[in-house]
């Protein structure tokens, strides 16, 4: 059974149709990149798969759970336990340190474990930045803290929306290499949205969306 199963997914915003019947299957442990130009519906698709938004029609099943059928509370719990999110913007709490921002994700999942947060940040090369506030970190470092925050609760699914959109090439490579290592070690599924073909190269499979429809679905060689 597919880990992510999307069938006939549609989404309307008023008179605008963002998704026009998406069918997609992703296997557990895959790294899938969703590509497309701005306004093609790729972020909408990610939001619907992540349960951040409700679909107008169609179905989304993750790990066998139909998320459209879940109540708000159950959906929050499901998201908390199954998924990790990385966005283009870091959405940090500015007055908390890097370690504390990671611990915040632990707190909402279960309980805080500072030692574990330190270990993960150190593993991502931020051992000397644990007590720095977000404003004291570079863009690349901030994005690595975002990754730490996303993976700290051992999610089965990592959803990333333009995670390197704000980074220069050097930091983009560093971030993607980090994700690659974690993906190799962590056995989680990655669904990454980007408009940058360079970023898409890191994925195992690239799904291209245009005008709310999948126009291409190909494996990276």
């Amino acid at each position: 059974m597919s880990f992510i199963l999307v069938g006939g997914l549609t989404k309307h915003y008023g008179t605008t149709t963002a998704l026009k019947g998406i069918d997609l299957e992703v296997q557990e442990g895959e790294w899938v990149c969703i590509m497309g130009p701005s306004g093609s519906g790729k972020s909408t698709l990610l939001n619907l798969i992540g349960g951040l938004d409700r679909a107008t029609g169609g179905r989304v099943a993750i790990d066998g759970v139909e998320i459209n059928a879940l109540s708000e509370d159950s959906l929050s719990r499901f998201r908390r336990e199954i998924m990790g999110f990385i966005f283009q913007q870091s959405h940090f709490i500015p007055y908390l340190s890097a370690a504390e921002n990671v611990m915040l994700a632990q707190y909402f999942h279960s309980i805080c474990d500072e030692e574990e947060a330190r270990e993960v940040l150190t593993q991502l090369g931020l051992g000397d930045r644990l007590h720095h506030r977000p404003s004291q970190l570079s863009g690349g470092e901030q994005q690595r803290v975002c990754i730490a925050r996303a993976i700290i609760n051992n999610p089965k699914l990592l959803l990333a929306d333009e995670p390197t959109g704000n980074l220069d090439r050097e930091n983009t490579i560093l971030t993607l290499e980090t994700l690659k290592e974690l993906h190799k070690a962590g056995q989680f599924t990655i669904l990454l949205v980007t408009h940058d073909p360079f970023v898409a190269k890191w994925a195992q499979r690239v799904v291209t969306i245009e005008d709310g429809r999948i126009v291409r679905d190909e494996l990276n060689t």
Binding site: H109, S110, D113
Partner: peptide, 14 residues
Amino acid sequence: KTRGEMRKYIKGLK
């Protein structure tokens, strides 16, 4: 299996 699972277990118990 994971530390996250362990934390969740501890939280549940608490």
